[in-house]
Amino acid sequence: MSDADLIEVKSEVEFEDGDRELVDVNGAEVGVLRVDGEFHAVRNRCLHDCGPIAEGAVGKKLVGEFVEPGKRVEKDYDDDEPIISCPWHGWSYDLETGEQLADDDIVLPTYDVVVEDGVVYVDGSSS
């Protein structure tokens, strides 16, 4: 990464939890989100039919655990796995890796987000 690859988003103090910003990264529209304090950046173009994925609901991955035969599968949300869902038809992706939850061969481009001198940047060389 060189400084030339950094695309400025906005200052860190103004970037509150839950905020989202769109920036242009080498001609691609990228959504930058702050979720539970962490920054994430994803290409704003769903791999299903190009829906505005970065505008979608942020949630957590639901995981099921088989406890024993005949018992209900235990289902709960995994706090460590934030996901984002496309508002058009619900395709969901891991916010960190970009993997489609139902098929990890489908990967939404994600980008590194860095904070330097109090300013949030997307690393354009990181997708």
Partner: peptide, 11 residues
């Protein structure tokens, strides 16, 4: 604010 300029992708 989040405002996409691709409101109708693949127009």
């Amino acid at each position: 604010m989040l405002r996409s300029d691709e409101s109708q992708p693949r127009q």
